[in-house]
Design a protein around this nucleic acid. Structure first.
Length: 223
DNA sequence: GCGACAG
DNA sequence: ATCTTGTCGC
């Protein structure tokens, strides 16, 4: 829960040091309820020329993938977008939306990277440390690391590497669609991260938790 | 030094 | 992220 509500002071170096420190607390092994009963989907968006940040939180049944509750939270935008420091900008809104759900999900899917980050603390990892919940990052584009393109079949994947270590997967979730960049957040193993995303697909490029959260967060109405 | 850079 | 309709390709 460290340094999340403190106002942005512009000190990028300090923020980076905090990320490295928080990343040390990550549990990169499977440690979530089984069998999984509930899943969560989270995504953030902006309104009023970026002055307002809104976040969508969605609770769903792990077996049917049907949403059971949803919540949208709005907060004044606290800082600008700085590559590598995304979580400091969007996490406050995500946490506010999470607090509005009837109960927390047993596993959260976050729109953005988990440990596939320069200091291993993408927004999904930061969300996990801040809440204690198991989390997985699902991003549409890479932030760092190198990789070979995965095969064309759904399920095909290659390792996303950074500084000699695997930080995630480049996963083909659907034919003829650009691959997803999947990485563990907190309390989820590298192998399970990809498997869990595959298990949540329903015919679209994005797994249901993030797909529905994306749709909710970017709807023109309800604002 | 130069280029890249989640959302 | 956001401004935004139709259009090309599978």
């Amino acid at each position: 829960m460290s340094a999340l509500l403190e106002p942005w002071d512009g000190d990028i170096a300090k923020a980076r040091r905090l990320q490295a420190q928080l990343a040390m607390q990550l549990v990169l092994e499977d440690d979530f309820p089984t069998p999984l009963r509930s899943l969560g989907g989270f995504d953030a968006g902006f309104e009023a020329e970026g002055t307002v940040t809104h976040a969508a939180a969605l609770l769903m049944d792990a077996d049917t993938l049907q949403p059971t509750a949803q919540r949208i939270a709005r907060l004044p935008t606290c800082m600008p977008y700085i590559p590598g420091l995304l979580s400091f900008r969007e996490l406050p809104a995500l946490l506010a939306a999470l607090a509005g759900l009837p109960q927390p999900p047993q596993l959260a899917f976050i729109d953005g990277h988990g440990i596939a980050h320069p200091r291993r603390l993408g927004i999904a990892a930061h969300f996990g440390i801040a809440t204690g919940l198991a989390s997985i990052g699902v991003a549409k584009k890479p932030l760092c690391g190198s990789f070979d393109p995965p095969g064309p079949e759904p399920g095909d994947r290659t390792r996303l590497m950074h500084r000699g270590a695997q930080i995630g997967w480049v996963l083909r979730s659907k034919r003829r669609c650009n691959p997803l960049f999947v990485s563990p957040g907190h309390r989820v193993s590298m192998a399970s991260a990809a498997e869990l995303v595959m298990r949540c697909l329903a015919g679209y490029r994005l797994p249901e938790p993030t797909r529905l959260a994306d749709r909710l967060a970017s709807q023109r109405d309800g604002r």
